[in-house]
Amino acid sequence: MIKVRFTLLIIGTLIFSVSTAFSETNILCIQKFLSKTAFDTGSTDGRWGEKTETAINDLFDQVGISEPKTIKAKDAIEVCKILQGSNNKALLESVNFKVYPVSIGKNP
């Protein structure tokens, strides 16, 4: 009985470890992309924090990607796929700089 419990524990640990590594890879993929843009968070530690979440949501907002609606850690795989997609270079160019639209009016 003790042996069975021990085995289950190992399996659980393994699953947890794999899951963490997988998630870390995708968060790193997002953070590395962010680091090349105007939305650089300043760190690429593979951990999902408030800065990463705000930055990636701002980036998607600027380039007009509407799905996922509000990006959370669980969306890291999907977001990473978008960032590594075929139009990666065009996407990167479009977020090199933050652009502030002008609304000065016709008669300033």
Partner: peptide, 27 residues
């Protein structure tokens, strides 16, 4: 200063340049 957007403004001596901004021919 001439307000351009919530973050930036332009010195009022840039009269011609501000009109160029308004006419979509300056950045």
């Amino acid at each position: 200063a001439l307000k351009i957007n919530p973050l930036f403004a332009l010195h009022p001596n840039f009269k011609t340049f501000s009109k160029m901004l308004a006419n979509e021919e300056a950045s």
